[in-house]
């Protein structure tokens, strides 16, 4: 199965000379379709840098980032923008919804920017909102919705169309535990349906939704955790 995301010996240094800060030092990582990978680490460990590089929002100072086999560093500005619009979906902690647009318009926006007709974009937006169980609120503005609902709209926007890579940066940051769980459930379902997901979090409970958890310290992967294999075995040992 082809990896949707691949980081090959990626380095990212901010600044230069005596002020140089090495945010990432030789990170190698792959994410396959149907796989949700969580990145855990303390503040300053390089989590967000990694996510920005994976999403083509930043360029590495060494190594390569590939999305569906295409090395982002070799793409023209126009091609890179197209990959960001069509293939990659972003979910941020602070939702980043446009306040003057309704939920449906927010979700449809990336498709409209990509040249889709308004009608087709709205249809796809409604389907994405249905996926996050918010079809009834499609015509509400962000300030008419709760934090959890806004974040689900943001997820719908990240999933709309044929996005095959979903990147989430602390998507449950400001939400209570129940609402945060609902958001993660939506993300998990989308990944189970075939997308690849990369989730940055400092909350262990949220990382529990991932298939693989990667621990980052000072820009280096120090450990990773795959599932034990059988949940029932774990219960037997607990009892």
């Amino acid at each position: 199965m082809t990896d949707v995301l691949e980081l090959r010996d990626v380095h990212r240094t901010h600044g230069d000379g005596a002020n140089a800060v090495q945010a990432l030092r030789g990170v190698t990582l792959t994410v396959r379709p149907g796989e949700l990978v969580a990145i855990m680490g303390p503040s300053g460990s390089g989590k967000s840098t990694l996510l920005n590089l994976a999403g083509g929002l930043d360029r590495p100072t060494g190594g390569e980032v590939l999305v569906e086999g295409a090395s982002l560093g070799t793409l023209s500005h126009r091609r890179l923008s197209a990959v960001r619009r069509r293939t990659i979906g972003y979910v941020f902690q602070d939702f980043n919804l446009l306040p003057s647009l309704t939920a449906a318009e927010n979700v449809a926006l990336p498709l409209e920017l990509d040249g889709k007709s308004i009608r087709a974009a709205r249809r796809a937006a409604l389907a994405a909102l249905t996926e996050v169980d918010l079809a009834d609120l499609a015509h509400r503005f962000p300030d008419e919705m709760s934090g959890g609902q806004q974040q689900r709209v943001a997820i719908a926007r990240a999933l709309v169309g044929e996005r095959r890579l979903v990147l989430a940066d602390e998507p449950t940051g400001a939400l209570d535990s129940q609402t945060g769980e609902a958001v993660l459930r939506v993300l998990r379902e989308r990944v189970d349906a075939g997308a690849a997901g990369l989730l940055v979090t400092h909350e262990a409970r949220h990382a529990g939704w991932a298939d693989r958890v990667i621990f980052l310290r000072d820009g280096v992967i120090i450990d990773s955790s795959g599932p034990l294999g059988s949940a029932d075995d774990l219960l037997e040992r607990t009892s």
Partner: peptide, 21 residues
């Protein structure tokens, strides 16, 4: 610390899986 943390996260993954199931 790290080996214990990895074991804890692994257990969390399994519990979450059980919960969704």
């Amino acid at each position: 610390v790290q080996s214990q943390r990895t074991a804890g996260v692994r257990a969390l993954q399994e519990y979450t899986r059980l919960k969704t199931r």
